[in-house]
Structure formats: structure tokens, C-alpha cells
């Protein structure tokens, strides 16, 4: 097997418990624009890692590297690697099919994006894509996923109604259920509550808190209170670079870098 870069190897010996993924020497280019520069960061297994930073700092760009979303558009280029453990696969290797990556890593978008289909079909879609045909299996997994996303009680009597009829918060939980139905190893959240009201936001945060027992979570947020509430680890990014990474408690109480301190105290950003 190919050996991971030294930046990545450094993380795997961490005393903080298992590592699910790690970025090593990651740079990213939109055509000629260098959006990410030499990012090195570990993602701890079954923990929530938050990515914070001012608008345009590259946090969403970084998140979208994990499921090779950038491959959908021409002119994008990765350098370096993102290793997924325990199998030590480099997600960014050209020979790794982005579809394989996306089957292992789920993503929840900024704006809820349910398909214009029924609630049931939205959740079942991931299973159908994987070739599952057995009605009983699909029924079962749809129910499990909706229960895990704390949505089952609200929709169990109207699984065949359109997903668009749900409220914004329900739609976002449906999108989470859609990912959970296929048991992802890592779940990416791209500012999942920025389009939601405070109450819906609260229920999503509570859900993230519950989900970390079964899945590793990486969340982009522009809301520092949210990062402080939901995450175990926080990475602060600025101008395409990773400025500081550490336990959320440490980052918010005693940041090591001046730029991090300026941002979290509200002097910048």
C-alpha cells in the first residue's frame, strides 16, 4: 500500500483517539486561483470538527474536497492528499473514483435541497443508487434513517407526500436522513443552519450532537457560537490557510494565534 505523506503520518500517532481522516499538504486551485494552501489537519473519529473563518477563507472549498465535489466542474485541481482511515485511501488520488468517495462520505448542503419527490423517495434514493431493490430492505432503512434524523414521528403518516411540503428545518433533517440511509463513514455539513430559523437551528444542532456516536462529522459554520456548541475540535481558516487547529475548548479559551483571537473575539471577520 502507498504510504501517506509525513504530515498525515504525524496525525495517526495522536494520543487523542482514532483518526478518521487527515488532510496532508492539501492545496486547491479554481483554474489559476489558489483557494487552499498547504492544509494539514486531522479529523477525529466519531467527533465533530468545526471549520470556522471569515467569508471567502476557503472553508467550504476545503469541505467540498472531501467528497470530490469539485470534480463536477472543469478547471479545478487538487494537490496533496486527504487520507481516509482505516483503509488509508487517498481520496484525492486520480485513480480513486469520486463516486466511490461519495458513497462513503455524505454531505448536507447550506440550503436544504430535497428532490422534488416524495419524502420516502428522497430517503430511498441513496439506496436505489446503490442498486438496492428489495422493498422490505428499503422500507426498513428509510424508517431507520428518518428515526435517526429525528423526523420519523413528524412524517410517518405522510411518507408519500412531497418533500417540498415540509418546513425548512424538516427539509434539512430530511437531507440528513437521506445521507444516513446509506451509513456514511463521514458526514459533511456545509453551513447547514444558515437558511434556518433559531428553533430549527437548535434541532439540527441537537441532532448533530446525537449523531456523533455513530458517524464522524465535519461542519462548516460561520457562527462561532454554533462551533462552540456542537464541536469537539475546531479549525480556524483564513485566506486559504489553516491558521489554527485544536480542541474547541482550547481554541475558544486560549487561542495560540493572534489572528484566531481577533476573529473569535469579533475584532475581525
Amino acid at each position: 500500500m502507498e504510504i501517506a505523506r509525513p504530515e498525515v503520518q504525524r496525525f495517526t500517532g495522536s494520543a487523542d483517539g482514532a483518526i478518521k481522516a487527515a488532510a496532508g499538504g492539501l492545496s486547491f486551485y479554481y483554474g489559476a486561483v489558489n483557494a487552499l494552501r498547504n492544509i494539514n489537519v486531522p479529523i477525529h473519529e466519531k467527533r465533530v470538527t468545526a471549520l470556522i473563518g471569515p467569508s471567502g477563507c476557503g472553508k467550504s472549498t476545503f469541505l467540498r474536497c472531501f467528497n470530490r465535489m469539485h470534480d463536477l466542474y472543469p478547471g479545478n485541481r487538487y494537490e496533496g492528499e486527504i487520507r481516509l482511515f482505516p483503509d488509508n485511501t487517498n481520496l484525492l488520488a486520480p485513480e480513486v473514483d469520486p463516486i466511490e468517495v461519495r458513497m462513503r462520505i455524505g454531505m448536507v448542503f447550506q440550503k436544504p435541497n430535497p428532490f422534488p419527490k416524495t419524502i420516502y423517495e428522497n430517503v430511498a434514493y441513496g439506496l436505489r443508487v446503490r442498486g438496492e431493490r428489495a422493498r422490505r430492505v428499503i422500507d426498513d432503512k428509510v424508517e431507520q434513517a428518518l428515526k435517526s434524523a429525528a423526523l420519523w414521528d413528524e412524517v410517518k403518516d405522510r411518507l408519500q407526500s412531497l418533500a417540498f411540503n415540509l418546513s425548512g428545518g424538516q427539509q434539512q433533517r430530511l437531507c440528513i436522513a437521506r445521507c444516513l440511509a446509506t451509513d456514511p463513514e463521514l458526514l459533511l455539513f456545509d453551513e447547514p443552519t444558515s437558511a434556518l430559523d433559531p428553533i430549527a437551528t437548535g434541532s439540527i444542532e441537537e441532532l448533530i450532537h446525537k449523531l456523533k456516536d455513530r458517524v464522524t462529522i465535519l461542519i462548516v459554520t460561520h457562527n462561532m457560537q454554533q462551533a462552540a456548541r456542537v464541536s469537539d475540535y475546531t479549525a480556524y481558516m483564513y485566506l486559504g490557510e489553516l491558521v489554527e487547529f485544536g480542541r474547541t475548548d482550547d481554541i475558544f479559551v486560549k487561542p495560540r494565534d493572534r489572528r484566531t483571537e481577533d476573529y473569535i473575539t469579533g475584532r475581525m471577520g
Partner: peptide
Amino acid sequence: EGSYALGAT
């Protein structure tokens, strides 16, 4: 993107 993110071809 929602479809591709779920692993669709």
C-alpha cells in the same frame, strides 16, 4: 449536486 453527493453516476 445533491444527487452526485449521494454517490449517483
